[in-house]
Design a protein around this nucleic acid. Structure first.
Lengths: 117, 117
DNA sequence: CGCCAGCCTCGATGGACATCGAATTAGATG
DNA sequence: CATCTAATTCGATGTCCATCGAGGCTGGCG
């Protein structure tokens, strides 16, 4: 049994390649739902594009007209979906993106990669 | 003002590149929400991977233990999000994927494309 | 130790949504 | 035209979820 040529990631078959099994659809749908909210999408964008590689909750909260608990809730949804991780430093909590998860979602929606010879 | 080198598509800046403006976040979140449901994700997968390039509603409905109205509702959500189009032929309605929309969503979650020299 | 700031958890609430049965439209066919 | 099938629309219903205020936990600091 030869090793897969392409990526090492499991379950990143593009939707255009084959019908998605129910289990994978449920798992991926949960991740897509996490980015299917404007607040969470902007949060992810702020975290992923931060030049320091991470963003502080205090900065994130200031960018919205929402209360702390609401931002905290959205961050938890993103974290439970595996899109971000959190880390406490001193009094502040910093969030960073998980590129592997984002790339997996990206690959699912990507067009057929021309079968890479 | 030179024309953009890369894609012709608007608003496909990866989230890792810059903070997403509110308007774009709202528009993209609506599309991600459309694929943020296991039934709709599997529907999109069945449509996009169909060797004929399109799928009939009757075949789609048979693949689920859901009623016709429910499948029809989900197809409408996907269509309103610009992910699929519908076309009537004889008594049947066929759906096909819109690769441009899928690629746009894919690009948003993609890692930084190394600035393509 | 006492206090303050940052962040999270909890419970409540109002709005959004997935699902269904019934009714409706569109096209084929006798 | 009458009728049958395919698909959508409509209205109702139960559930999920975004949001908030109140309160709790954690770590710095006087």
């Amino acid at each position: 049994m030869p090793k897969p040529l392409l990526p090492i990631l499991d379950d990143c078959t593009p939707v255009a390649r084959a019908v998605m099994p129910d289990g994978e659809a449920a798992e991926l749908a949960r991740m897509f739902k996490a980015v299917g909210d404007p607040v969470r999408l902007k949060l992810l964008s702020m975290i992923a594009s931060d030049p320091r590689g991470e963003a502080c909750v205090c900065d994130l909260t200031d960018a919205f007209t929402l209360t702390g608990p609401t931002i905290s809730h959205h961050l938890k949804v993103l974290r439970d979906a595996g899109l971000i991780t959190s880390r406490r430093r001193a009094s502040w909590v910093y969030y960073r993106a998980v590129p592997e998860t984002m790339e997996r979602l990206s690959a699912v929606l990507a067009p057929l990669p021309a079968v890479a010879a």
